[in-house]
């Protein structure tokens, strides 16, 4: 059994109005060091595949087809083996 952690974020240069609003709020709170805030999505998957390589291939496909919209979003993922 494998666990995949998928992170989806806006591509560089794509306006992120939520990130912008949160940055404003952090600055209001006095966190003056806040240079930039980007909002993204975290998706966790449990997968039953024969090995890690297959899991990687399948998760990449899932990201391209559904989990991310590659017109505006980038994705990264980590896969680790977990006990059933």
């Amino acid at each position: 059994m494998y666990k995949a952690k998928v992170y989806v974020t806006f591509k560089e240069g794509i306006l992120d109005p939520q990130g912008k609003a949160i940055k404003g709020s952090l600055l209001t709170l006095g966190y003056d060091e806040t240079e930039d805030v980007r909002i993204g999505k975290f998706i966790e998957l449990q997968l039953e595949t024969v090995n890690k390589v297959t899991a990687e291939v399948r998760v990449k496909e899932m990201c391209e087809k559904l989990l991310a919209n590659t017109v505006i979003e980038d994705y990264t993922f980590e896969i680790e083996e977990v006990e059933q």
């Binding site: 794509i14 109005p17 939520q18 919209n69 017109v71």
Partner: peptide
């Protein structure tokens, strides 16, 4: 239609949220 790729581009959250 955008998600399906039948039209080009994508939608983002309105800029005023």
């Amino acid at each position: 239609l955008l998600e399906a790729g039948l039209l080009p581009g994508a939608m983002r959250r309105n800029d005023n949220l």
